[in-house]
């Protein structure tokens, strides 16, 4: 047995033990450094998916806390020329209005729209949904000037009428990775993703998803009968009105405050009239409330 047991000498203990200690120390440092580096760059695990049912993503967003619950995020809905859009109110759709329309929508709620007067598809209607999943933090006096822009294209409507299901995830572009394209040329930039990819994840990689537009061929059984399930409970929304300016140069006059005429216009539009301002001058925005009109911001109406 003694032949198999080698008693270390003093020289061996002085030379091997520190060496093994340093090697072990180096190995542990490498492992810990790799752990630390990995902890600083966590892998992205998406909790949401674009195929989740309407309302699921926004509901989870509300549970995350923050100033999102009860906030009416301004949303501007734009559709092709001639197309009218209506939202649901008390279980029924209000009279359709020409777009663009600007409304305040609650985050996490699902709003059913009624799209009529579709070009080349007279008599057909599409009932898309809008779900706002995040909000903007605009300066307090310009909340209505910078709404989330939800664009419904003519191709989207055609695809929906053909039985296809269109999902548009609207996201806020990261300005440092935004494309150098002018918005006023082609409108809102968008692109398609393959069916096997998650549009929500793609949008999250490019910016911050804020709203989801879903278009399909679903049709209510009877549009004249309230259907809470189809309308997702008709959640409340805020109507924004922009009374037209009478003269192109009265912007300064409108800055001085509301007048009786503009208040009347605001109330008229608040009651669902589909008249659209045609002036190209800047208009004073207002929130319709009874017979009062409260100015909010200046916005050029195109």
């Amino acid at each position: 047995m003694h032949g198999h047991f080698r008693c270390p000498t003093i020289g061996d203990s002085l030379s091997q033990r520190p060496r093994a200690g340093w090697v072990g120390l180096a190995a542990v440092l490498v492992v810990l450094h790799s752990w630390a580096a990995r902890a600083q760059q966590p892998e992205v695990h998406y909790f949401h998916h674009g195929i989740m049912p309407p309302g699921a993503i926004g509901g989870v967003q509300l549970q995350r806390g923050g100033p999102v619950a009860g906030f009416f995020q301004p949303v501007e809905i734009t559709a092709p020329q001639g197309v009218s859009v209506a939202l649901a109110e008390n279980g029924l759709f209000v009279p359709p209005q020409q777009t663009p329309i600007k409304v305040g929508l609650l985050i996490g709620q699902v709003y059913r729209l009624r799209v009529v007067n579709i070009p080349f598809y007279e008599g057909l209607e599409v009932y898309p949904t809008i779900e706002v999943i995040d909000r903007l933090y605009a300066p307090p006096d310009q909340i209505w000037r910078f709404p989330i822009e939800v664009v419904i294209t003519e191709e989207d409507l055609r695809l929906a009428l053909e039985g296809k299901f269109v999902t548009r995830v609207v996201y806020l572009e990261d300005p440092r990775v935004a494309l150098p394209a002018a918005k006023e040329v082609q409108g809102q930039g968008w692109f398609d993703v393959a069916p096997d990819r998650d549009p929500l994840a793609v949008a999250d990689q490019l910016g911050r998803p804020v709203a989801i537009l879903r278009l399909g061929a679903r049709f209510p059984n009877n549009p004249l009968v309230p259907d809470p399930t189809f309308l997702f409970g008709s959640p409340p929304w805020v109507r924004f009105t922009s009374p037209p300016a009478s003269e192109p140069g009265d912007l300064e006059a409108r800055k001085q405050g509301p007048s009786a005429t503009t208040s009347e216009n605001a109330v008229t539009r608040a009651q669902g009239e589909s008249r659209r301002p045609t002036g190209r001058t800047a208009h004073k925005g207002a929130l319709a409330y009874g017979n009062q009109r409260v100015p909010t911001s200046l916005k050029p109406v195109r």
Binding site: I148, D156, G163, K164, V170, L172, G189
Partner: peptide, 13 residues
Amino acid sequence: YSPRFAAVRQVVT
């Protein structure tokens, strides 16, 4: 302050 929006579209059938 100048937010700009874009969209990702997916069409399934």
